[in-house]
Amino acid sequence: MDQEMNMKFMQIAMKYLPEAKEMLDQKGIEIDMENLQSVLNLLMQVMGDAYELGKQEAKQ
């Protein structure tokens, strides 16, 4: 995946990260910035997989 797409995914993930943190806070799950980075990386992997799947389906 190219750097430009990675940046777009990062922007999308950052958009939803506060909502994810709020959900965790409401459940009493404390998470620091280092652990949030892990969540952010996971979100980016999910978006990358979804993007690749969409790209494959568009070719069909």
Results as ranks from 00 to 15, higher is better:
residue 1 M to R: 09
residue 2 D to M: 13
residue 2 D to K: 02
residue 3 Q to M: 14
residue 3 Q to D: 14
residue 4 E to F: 00
residue 4 E to R: 09
residue 4 E to S: 13
residue 4 E to G: 12
residue 5 M to R: 14
residue 6 N to M: 11
residue 6 N to L: 14
residue 6 N to V: 13
residue 7 M to Q: 15
residue 7 M to S: 15
residue 7 M to P: 00
residue 7 M to K: 15
residue 8 K to C: 04
residue 8 K to N: 07
residue 8 K to M: 10
residue 8 K to E: 07
residue 8 K to A: 05
residue 9 F to V: 11
residue 9 F to M: 13
residue 9 F to Y: 04
residue 9 F to C: 06
residue 10 M to R: 13
residue 10 M to D: 03
residue 10 M to L: 15
residue 10 M to H: 10
residue 12 I to P: 00
residue 12 I to F: 00
residue 12 I to G: 04
residue 13 A to Y: 00
residue 13 A to K: 02
residue 13 A to M: 04
residue 13 A to G: 02
residue 14 M to Q: 13
residue 14 M to R: 15
residue 14 M to W: 09
residue 14 M to V: 09
residue 15 K to M: 13
residue 15 K to Q: 14
residue 15 K to R: 12
residue 16 Y to S: 07
residue 16 Y to K: 07
residue 16 Y to D: 12
residue 17 L to M: 15
residue 17 L to N: 00
residue 17 L to D: 01
residue 18 P to A: 10
residue 18 P to R: 05
residue 18 P to S: 05
residue 18 P to H: 02
residue 19 E to K: 08
residue 19 E to P: 00
residue 19 E to T: 13
residue 20 A to D: 06
residue 20 A to K: 09
residue 20 A to Y: 00
residue 21 K to F: 01
residue 21 K to N: 05
residue 22 E to G: 10
residue 23 M to L: 14
residue 23 M to Y: 05
residue 24 L to F: 02
residue 24 L to N: 01
residue 24 L to T: 04
residue 25 D to R: 13
residue 26 Q to C: 14
residue 26 Q to G: 13
residue 26 Q to Y: 00
residue 27 K to T: 00
residue 27 K to S: 07
residue 27 K to F: 01
residue 27 K to D: 02
residue 28 G to E: 02
residue 28 G to F: 01
residue 29 I to V: 13
residue 29 I to S: 05
residue 30 E to N: 10
residue 30 E to F: 09
residue 30 E to C: 12
residue 30 E to A: 09
residue 31 I to P: 03
residue 31 I to F: 00
residue 32 D to G: 07
residue 33 M to L: 12
residue 33 M to P: 04
residue 33 M to S: 15
residue 33 M to K: 15
residue 33 M to W: 03
residue 33 M to H: 09
residue 34 E to W: 04
residue 34 E to M: 05
residue 34 E to G: 04
residue 34 E to R: 11
residue 35 N to H: 06
residue 35 N to T: 14
residue 35 N to W: 05
residue 35 N to R: 14
residue 36 L to S: 05
residue 36 L to Y: 02
residue 37 Q to N: 07
residue 38 S to F: 07
residue 38 S to M: 12
residue 39 V to W: 01
residue 39 V to S: 04
residue 40 L to Q: 03
residue 41 N to E: 14
residue 41 N to L: 10
residue 41 N to W: 05
residue 41 N to H: 12
residue 42 L to V: 13
residue 42 L to D: 12
residue 42 L to C: 10
residue 43 L to G: 02
residue 43 L to E: 03
residue 44 M to W: 01
residue 45 Q to F: 09
residue 45 Q to C: 12
residue 45 Q to M: 11
residue 46 V to T: 08
residue 47 M to T: 05
residue 47 M to Q: 01
residue 48 G to M: 03
residue 48 G to V: 02
residue 49 D to F: 11
residue 49 D to H: 12
residue 50 A to Q: 11
residue 50 A to Y: 07
residue 50 A to T: 03
residue 50 A to S: 11
residue 51 Y to S: 08
residue 51 Y to A: 04
residue 52 E to S: 12
residue 52 E to T: 09
residue 52 E to F: 11
residue 52 E to A: 14
residue 52 E to P: 02
residue 53 L to K: 13
residue 53 L to H: 06
residue 53 L to G: 04
residue 54 G to N: 06
residue 55 K to A: 08
residue 55 K to F: 09
residue 55 K to Q: 10
residue 56 Q to E: 04
residue 56 Q to A: 05
residue 56 Q to G: 02
residue 57 E to A: 14
residue 57 E to D: 08
residue 58 A to W: 06
residue 58 A to E: 08
residue 59 K to H: 08
residue 60 Q to I: 03
residue 60 Q to F: 07
residue 60 Q to C: 06
